[in-house]
Design a protein around this nucleic acid. Structure first.
Length: 517
RNA sequence: GCGGGUGUAGCUCAGUGGUAGAGCGUCAGCCUUCCAAGCUGAAUGUCGGGGGUUCAAAUCCCCUCGCCCGCUCCA
């Protein structure tokens, strides 16, 4: 049932993406490569428009000029950091330590442990017979708990490494588990791509392709503070490619191994961090609605306590109901309260001082100034996936209406539509092409920075409308008999196919209003 | 990672051992005063890839890659 509902629209969407130049498989003529996708002319512009919209609404004019919870305008600055960073960056962030080692999962408790950290209590003589043995992690609550249980079962016990027990571990009870046999075999999680900078190949120089853009911000936090007169609270935005060796690339571009992120790290005083977290969570949800995901397919989901990272005070996801996740949802953006975890880590690993001296805080001095306060800021991170965003815009916009002459169309918001408008002579004669060409040139001069303005005089008017519908062009402007006699054009709306008459010299103003410029 | 499905023109697909096809789209010309209309013509194929069987393979066999679905995974 779900298959029937979800599969067909996705197939049609993927066919349209290919047919009209939105998304191609990477290296297609060589058979494709798992987890990588390219954008065609339409897709490249769509994604660029989305990225620009993010940058405009987050960096150039944050939150549409709105005030933050402190009653002042929100201030953010931009940054662009390298895909390749010093390998220690990923040690500090926890990406190397956590995911390059073999891990065992507990299917019962969903716990995950480093294979080499898991120990097991077995009887002193080493032979448990047909009784279960008790796994634990040293210095964790599981150690005492499991020891007690083991002693109750066997009397005297000793401790051995999990690796000394032959697999499968059908009699091993996981550290937090109740039943035996729920630990999986150890698996290597090699989720970061690596590479070797330097002309001479030497494993010792191994570096990683970043799995997220965020760390570049933390690493440059001090430079930004020292050189740009920013004061807390403020944010640093960073967009760009990231790379993850996804276990299972799946669902079109949704889980790609190379993808683009748009992340903001917003730094604030610990006492205000919860307010800022809520502020960003709500704004980001509103933003996605504003650029076209206004329907019921978009939700904001607050993470449960047990989903949170150990350092996080709160995380929510903006999620979209894609055809392939339906009736469930897939993550578009995560808004995380990261506390001071990252700055603390980088401070520790690098040895650099990353705290902030806040001259707006502290007790008031006799001269009227403030004493200041030195602290490590807390960070709120709205981290969006641009490829997922673009895919969501396409899925949300994809509409099929068999009562129309052009049944398939993309209802893209004018701000993100790759082509903003098209000019057609109704017929290629009677002087119409010349007028159309003139209008096209005029509109192009005015709007080229926003996206394409097209001109098409080939074939029937119906086909031209249909083509524009499929790539989501919001407006088609037709030069017809009325234009020739009265200087009036016909503008057709993509979504309703309704037409309205507009004076030829007002077309620019009409588009300006509709495109919000 | 496991299991199922699938791969032939830009798209949708037919073609079960004997000359690679259709519809749509695309392009050109004609026609055309508002919705993939009509007429004429044209271009476009590593039949996913490699190997094998055969006089002959899109078709049979083996291997492999991609995509889709379900589990799994998801820092």
């Amino acid at each position: 049932m779900t298959q029937e509902v979800s599969k067909k629209p996705m197939d049609a969407i993927m066919a349209l993406c290919k047919r009209r130049g939105f998304i191609y498989q990477a290296s297609e003529i060589y058979g494709g490569i798992n987890g990588f996708w390219d954008y065609g002319p339409m897709g490249a512009q769509l994604k660029k428009n989305l990225r620009d919209a993010w940058w405009q609404d987050m960096i150039l004019r944050p939150c549409w000029g709105r005030n933050g919870p402190n009653g002042r305008p929100v201030r953010n600055v931009g940054l662009e950091t390298c895909v390749i960073q010093h390998p220690k960056v990923w040690e500090a962030s926890g990406h190397v330590g956590g995911f390059n080692d073999p891990m065992v999962d507990d299917k019962e408790t969903k716990g995950r442990y480093r294979y080499d950290h898991v120990m097991v209590f077995v009887p002193e003589n080493g032979d448990p017979g047909d009784k279960p043995v008790f796994a634990y992690v040293g210095d964790q609550p599981s150690e005492a708990k499991q020891k007690k249980k083991a002693e109750k079962t066997f009397g005297a016990v000793k401790s051995v490494a999990l690796s000394t027990i032959p697999q499968p571990w059908t009699r091993v009870i996981g550290p937090e588990a109740e039943k035996p046999g729920t630990l999986t075999e150890p698996r290597m999680f090699n989720l970061m791509f690596d590479t070797i900078p330097g002309a001479i190949r030497d494993e010792a120089n191994k570096a990683y392709l970043r799995p997220e853009t965020a760390q570049g911000v933390f690493v440059q936090f001090k430079n930004v503070v020292d050189t740009t007169r920013v004061k807390i609270p403020f944010g640093i935005g960073n967009t760009g490619r990231s790379f993850r060796n996804e276990v299972t690339p799946r669902n079109f571009t949704f889980r790609s191994r190379e993808f683009e992120q748009a992340e903001l790290e917003f730094f604030c005083h610990p006492s205000e961090s919860l307010e800022w977290y809520k502020f960003w969570r709500d704004f980001r949800m509103e933003w996605w609605k504003e650029i076209g995901l206004a329907g019921e397919n978009l939700i904001l989901r607050e993470h449960e306590k047990d989903e949170l990272s150990h350092y996080s005070l709160g995380t929510s996801d903006v999620e979209y109901r894609f055809p392939f996740t339906s009736p469930g949802f897939g993550e578009l953006e995560g808004i995380a309260h990261r506390g001071d975890y990252d700055l603390t880590q980088h401070q520790k690993v690098s040895g650099a001082k990353l705290d902030f001296f806040d001259t707006d805080r502290g007790e008031i001095l006799p001269n009227g100034g403030k004493k200041g306060e030195r602290y490590l800021p807390h960070c709120i991170e709205p981290a969006a996936g641009l490829d997922r965003g673009a895919l969501a815009l396409i899925c949300e916009g994809y509409t099929r209406d068999d009562s129309r002459a052009s049944p398939e169309f993309l209802k893209l918001h004018p701000r993100v539509a790759p082509i903003k408008a098209a000019v057609f002579p109704l017929v290629a004669k009677d002087g119409m092409p010349e007028v159309a060409e003139k209008l096209h040139a005029e509109l192009n001069d005015k709007f080229w920075k926003l996206g394409g303005i097209e001109m098409d005089e080939k074939q029937s008017i119906g086909k031209r409308y249909a083509r524009m519908d499929e790539i989501g062009t919001p407006f088609c402007i037709t030069i017809d008999g009325d234009t020739m006699s009265q200087q009036i054009v016909t503008i057709r709306d993509r979504d309703t196919a309704q037409q309205q008459k507009v004076s030829l010299d007002k077309v620019g103003a009409f588009l300006s209003e509709k495109l919000g410029v």
